[in-house]
Structures are given as structure tokens and as C-alpha cells.
Amino acid sequence: MPLSVYLNVAVGGVLTGLVYGLMALGLSVIFGVVRVVNFAHGEMMTVAMYIAIVTFAWFHLDPLILLVPIAAVLFVFGYALQASLINPFITRPEHSQFLLLVALAIIIANTLLIIFGPDARAVQTAYAYDSFQVGPVIVDAAKIYAGAAAIVVTVALFAFFRLTLLGKAIRACADNHTGALVVGLDVERLYALTFGLGAACVGAAGSMLVLITDATPMVGPGYTLLAFVIVITGGLGSMPGALLGGVLIGVTEAIAGLLFTPSAKSMFAFAILVLVLLFRPRGILGKRPA
């Protein structure tokens, strides 16, 4: 096969991987701070995808512009969810948290199913079929926009955690829960904020993902699993790790699909996961536990 084919496929894998990485970042942020595994992650992204699809159908607003309001909506959703439902479960055993979030996932998926039916839906932007040609490489325009937006959102989030007082307070909660209570941080509110931010990442990722793929109400669990694979590969709690994990998985799947049979490409993503777990259990960019 000509080299340009590999190049094309790899570039596509990087860009898709960035969007996956942004989604996984949400999971990583939530787990890193709140220590709750969001088993409804993929379903929350499905919600974002449907909001993008519906608003696009009604108002013809570009999903890239919708990214901000959709992230805001998901933020409010995540905040309310943590404040009302999850905070009371923080001190409960992990299996009750698991049941709570799986129940939530099922409720979300089936509500979407009732409202939208089982068929795939998509948005048809003006550039949905555009692609750029750079030398031998043809790149999907929507993927470029989505990948770029994923980087922007990640940088913004990174800046928030590094530079703002509120971001530092959230990191403090993740660092030392007792310490946060001792200095009088409102930990429950910060948890809600964190869950909101994680959900906002998912919202942003979801609104970009509709540029790349269709949505059906039942795509959630696949994305939840993908987010787990990415986060564990990249390193739990590491923000650059989530993005790197996303890109790594994206490229691996793409190249594996090219070299072997595409139907087996997920196998290679899991193979990477297994290798990372064997040789670097804390993930590629994960920090050694203190």
C-alpha cells in the first residue's frame, strides 16, 4: 500500500483520538477529584450529541458554535447530579455508587430511545463532506475542526486548574480530602463543580463528535468503555495523559484497521491497555501514588 494511505489514516486517527481524549478527560477529572467512576459517561455524551443534533435541526447552528452552550448545559446537569444524587453516595461503598450510575445510564439511554427512536441521527453541516488536500494527504475537514476544538478546550481546562483559585481548590480536594475539609473548603460544592466540569468536557466532546459520527441512543456504553481504556492507558488523573491516551488509541485503531482486518481494530486498543497494565500499571503519564 502506498505510504500516503498510512499517512491519511494516521492523521484521521490522531484527530478522532483528540476528541476521544477530551471525552476521556472528563472521566479522568471526575475520578481524579471526586473518586467516583462515572459509569454514565458515554450516556452523558449521547445526551450532548442529541442536543447538538436537535439544535442543529431547529436553528441550523453549527456544532462548533454550539460547543459552548452544550458544554454549559452539561455542566449544569453534572453539577446538579453531583449535588443532588452523588454527594450522598460519596461515603458509601463502591458497589452502591456503581449501581447508582449504571441506573442513571440506563435511564438516560432509554429516555433518549423514547424521545428519538432507535435510528441513527446526524447533522449535515455545510462542510460535512469537505476535506482538505495537503500533498498526498486528504484530511476530513470536520475532523480537523473537532480535533482543534478538543485541544482548545483541554488547554482552557488545564489553565483553569493551574491558574485560577477555584481550579487550585479543586486540585487541593483531589490532593488531600481531609486537608480540604480542615482549611474550610466547601468540598461538596467543589465536587459538584468538578463533576460539572467533567460533564462539560463530555458535552464539548459530544457536540464535536456529531461532526464525525452519527448518534443512536445506545452508543453510550461503547464510549464509556473507550473512555476507560483511554484514561487507564494515559494515566488516571493526568490531563495530558487523557489526551495522549486518546490519540494513541485513535491511531492504533486506525493503523491496525489498515494492516489487519478493520473489524478487529478494537482488539488492538485493548491490547495496548493490557500492555500498559502489565508494564506500567499507573498509565503512560500517570504519577506514582504518593
Binding site: 484521521g12 489498515l258 482486518t261
Partner: peptide, 17 residues
């Protein structure tokens, strides 16, 4: 011949191939 997962969301690799 190229086999793919019927539930997939991205067929870019398959088409490239």
C-alpha cells in the same frame, strides 16, 4: 474483502483501505 463491525461509527479506515 474488508469486514467491519456493523455497529461502528467510523469507517474512514475501511474506505481508505
Amino acid at each position: 474483502d474488508i469486514a467491519y463491525d456493523p455497529a461502528t461509527h467510523d469507517l474512514s479506515v475501511e474506505v481508505a483501505k
